[in-house]
Amino acid sequence: MPKSDLPTQPSHDKDSEAGFWLKLASLLAVLGVVALCAMIVVAAIPAFFSQGQTPFEWSWQPYQGHFGVLPMCAATLLLALLALALGFPWALAIVIWHLTEEAPALSWAKKAFALFIRLLTTVPTVVLSFAAVFLLTPLLRLAFGGTGFCLLGASLMVSLLILPTMVLVLESGLAARLDALCPHGLALGLSRYQLLRQCVLPQSRRTLIQAAVLGFGRALGDTLLPLMLAGNAPKLPSSFTESARTLSAHMALVTANEVGGAAYNSLFAAGLLLLGTSIGVTLILRKLAPNRARGKK
């Protein structure tokens, strides 16, 4: 049938439209996000145009009029990268084990482990931090001297925090591909491990990146672990065993101590930086998962 003969009258049905309250609820939800972003952007604008006391310098000495947040940016990045470097290989190894363990005696362990990982995603960070302060910090003090409150300690715990999230993403990405290969792959005499190593992992770069980006985003934004474990010295750390202050911890400290005007500028600048990076991470993740049903039934 030629295109011009296609029927044109839409058979529209008014009853199938959403009611007023549903639309209002959805509008509220979306407006909440817009308000959040707008508020933080507007609050941070003065920080970018203030003369003299710019937050973009390398020194934080409020009583000398220096309100720089760059050391905190560096510390945030270092912390997140170290946590990722520790956590990602660990998560990958765990997932590979979980997908390829073939010993029948351990099948119950695999099931229990899945629930264990699920539970780990919900351990309150403040509890994790509290335990680490009294267990990990003394150990670090013994090993490296100093106070024990350092970037390394915080990174170790953050890697534990982001581990279960990365495990879940990796597992959901790799499991389906491996299972699709399994019947005939196993018939060829290959083990599940060999199949995963040879056929699945090389094709799964997207999933690996996705897990790493998600873990990185979580690590950037966490507040309590660095606040309670990293020592909070507002300077650029020269090694991982030194004290450091992340952007998130900086925000918690500044609001707690109400230093005043120019300090607030650095607070809002820090907030905007964190929000900006987290939105960036979200957008990258959405790009990485194009097949996700987006608004499709």
């Binding site: 296609l6 029927p7 044109t8 009258q9 839409p10 058979s11 049905d13 199938s16």
Partner: peptide
Amino acid sequence: NETLGDTTFSGRIRLDLGAGLEDIYP
């Protein structure tokens, strides 16, 4: 069909729904 997605139509369909034939599409 309308519950399955957006549809367009042309022509007419009449049914006897108890009061003689009547249009069911506008």
